[in-house]
Nucleic acid binder design. Structure first.
Lengths: 148, 148
DNA sequence: GACAAATCATCTGCTGTCAAACAATCTGCG
DNA sequence: CGCAGATTGTTTGACAGCAGATGATTTGTC
C-alpha cells in the first residue's frame, strides 16, 4: 500500500522514475484505446506545428531514438497520415509531411488529451502542476547528463 | 538543441517520462560504476530498514516486478549479501535476510548516493528539490492509475 | 574532379521489462 | 477431511528501446 517511505523522501531519482513509469503506463493504455501511439501522436503534433522535417530532426526534438522513429513513421505512412518524400536538397534524408488525413487524426487525438491529463494528474493542484512543469523543463534543459 | 517547447509546456506526462529516462540512465551509469544495480541497492536498503521480507513484499513496496525480483535476489544471494530461507509459517514464500556482508556493501553504496544526487539534480535549487519530492510523493500515493 | 569524413535512414543483435502460464502451498468453506 | 480459489516464486515468450554496423548520400579539402 505505502511506497517505502524513505525512498520517496531521500531518493529523488527513484521517485521520479517510479512516477514516470506509472504515468507512462497510463499514457500507453490511453493511446491504445485511442489507436494512436504516443510516438505517432508526437510526430504528427510536431509536423503540424513546424512543417516537414527529416526523421533525424524529429528524433532529436522529440527525444525518440532514430531506429525507433523508423517504425513510427512506417506506421504513420501506412495509415496515410504522413507522406515520405526524399528531400531534393539532401537525398539522404526524407521530408516527412503530414497529410490532411493526419491532420484530422491529430485533431481527434488532441481533443482527448486534456481529459487524459486531468485524469492522470488529478492528485495535483494547478499550482503543483505548474511547479512540476517548470522543474522538469529545467531538468531537461541542463541536467542529467544530456549535454547535447 | 531545444526540446520542442510546446511539449514540455503542455504535455506534463511526456516531460515527466523524458526527464525520468535521462535520470534513469544517469543512475544506471552510476550503479554500473559502483557494481551494485539500482534494484539490488533498493532491496538491501529495505531489508536493512524493515527486516526480513518475502520477495512479494519487496516487489510491492519497491515497485519492482515479481519476475524481475527473482533475478535481483539471485544476484544478491550469489554475492553473499542476502540469505534466502523458507518462511516456516508459509513455505511458499522466502524470508529474505540481509547478511553482514550485505550491510557493509550497503553502507559503502549509500555513502556515494548524496554526491550522485547532487550531480544529477544540480540544475535544481534545494527548494525545487523539495517541491519535486512532495509532488512525486503525491503522484505515487494516489494518482496515475495505481490504486493498489 | 577525387577522396576522406560526416550524416541520414535502416537493420541487426542485445538487454531489460512485462504478461501469462506453471507448480507448490496456503486459506476458507462445506 | 476435501476441494475451490488465492498467493508465492519461477520460467517462458513477446516486445520495446538502444548501441553498433551498413549503404547511400553529402560536405569539405586538396
Amino acid at each position: 500500500m505505502a511506497y517505502f517511505p524513505r525512498l520517496a523522501a531521500e531518493r529523488l531519482d527513484i521517485a521520479l522514475c517510479r512516477a514516470s513509469a506509472a504515468v507512462a503506463r497510463a499514457a500507453d493504455v490511453h493511446a491504445a484505446g485511442e489507436g494512436l501511439g504516443v510516438g505517432q501522436h508526437l510526430v504528427l503534433q510536431m509536423l503540424d506545428a513546424v512543417g516537414p522535417c527529416s526523421q533525424q530532426t524529429l528524433s532529436d526534438e522529440l527525444r525518440i531514438d532514430r531506429s525507433v522513429m523508423v517504425g513510427v513513421c512506417d506506421d504513420l505512412e501506412q495509415a496515410g497520415h504522413v507522406r515520405r518524400e526524399r528531400n531534393p536538397r539532401d537525398r539522404r534524408s526524407y521530408a516527412v509531411t503530414i497529410t490532411d488525413s493526419g491532420r484530422r487524426r491529430l485533431a481527434q487525438a488532441q481533443a482527448l488529451i486534456p481529459a487524459f491529463l486531468e485524469d492522470t494528474f488529478q492528485a495535483l493542484t494547478p499550482d503543483e502542476r505548474g511547479q512540476l512543469s517548470a522543474i522538469l523543463a529545467k531538468l531537461l534543459q541542463v541536467g542529467a547528463g544530456d549535454p547535447r
